[in-house]
Amino acid sequence: MEHSLFLGTKSKRDGASLAFSYCGISQTEAGHSYGPSLTDSWVFHIVLSGTGEVHTSSETYRLGADDGFLIHPNDITRYQASRDTPWAYLWFAMKGDAIPEYLDAMGFSHNTVAFSVDRSTPFLRVLSSALYHTSDNIADQLELDALANHFLSTLSRHLNSVDQNGFPNQLSEIVKRAISVIHNEWHPGITAGWVSRRINVDRSYLSRLFHKETNITLKNYIDRMRLSHARDLLGMTDLSVAEIAAECGFNSEEALTRSFHETQSMTPTEFRRSRNGVVNNLGIGINFLRAAFNADAGLEDD
């Protein structure tokens, strides 16, 4: 479980050169895992304290305070807090055709995941400034887009290094095939049994091997992909929760709600509301966060 303060917007802004998507800050509990998930945004994370791991299809990165990681659009990523020192992190997501060019100028490659910054306070100030703009009017949308630009300029000023070396994931060909099938042949009724039949491997053997190599069961991996699809539909459509549950392969609306609350610490309805405003189960007030990082003093860095 994680305790989060989350700000989102329903504005798609797909044609913009750079546009705000969502942002937030989380304190995780020991061992909390997020993903695998897919996103259509560039999602920057800055680790504030504690430690954790980021898992891509090919590498694992072990990160701590003042490290960061970037989730690229349409990449499959999973990340997990340490059981001894669970991390806290902030995230800032954006879309836009201009982003790859900006990242290239900072030294990011097309597959850069991990990086480090000299300190996290300037990023907290950008985040706290975003929390002033919670309405759905064009003025606040433009302010949030400007803060997306400011987040990137802050990153360019405080970036220490990029392309930190990860640890290669030693996945067998069988597990790689299973993951490929799940991603490329996704459908609402997909199950562990279907995947095992699709790649012609005994289900029990595949399940044991998958868990051993990825530290997550095959069933949970599929369930989390269902949640990823559900999040997308909650944020981008007006389908009812019951319709989304059926579309994503859940047995009922209650099953989706239960899984959503266990992993997101909020209900599907609360998540949908957060796409157009603030949801806060972090345990601190928004005004406290604003004051703590001096948001009303302007956007200047230290």
Rank of each mutant, 00 (worst) to 15 (best):
G8S: 11
T9Q: 15
S11P: 01
A16W: 11
L18D: 10
A19I: 09
Y22L: 12
G24M: 05
G24V: 08
I25F: 02
T28P: 09
A30N: 04
H32P: 01
S33Y: 01
P36Q: 06
P36A: 04
L38A: 12
D40T: 15
S41P: 01
V43W: 00
F44C: 03
F44I: 11
F44G: 06
S49M: 05
G50K: 10
T51V: 02
T51Q: 12
T51R: 06
G52P: 02
V54I: 10
V54L: 07
T56A: 01
E59S: 04
Y61L: 02
R62V: 02
D66F: 01
F69K: 01
L70D: 07
D75Y: 09
I76C: 06
Q80I: 05
A81I: 05
S82H: 02
P86R: 06
W87S: 11
A88S: 14
L90V: 08
F92G: 13
A98L: 12
A98I: 14
P100W: 08
P100D: 13
P100F: 09
E101F: 05
L103Y: 03
D104E: 14
D104F: 07
M106L: 13
M106H: 10
G107V: 02
S109F: 05
H110F: 10
N111V: 04
V113E: 08
F115L: 12
S116F: 00
D118E: 00
L124P: 05
L124Y: 14
V126S: 02
L127G: 02
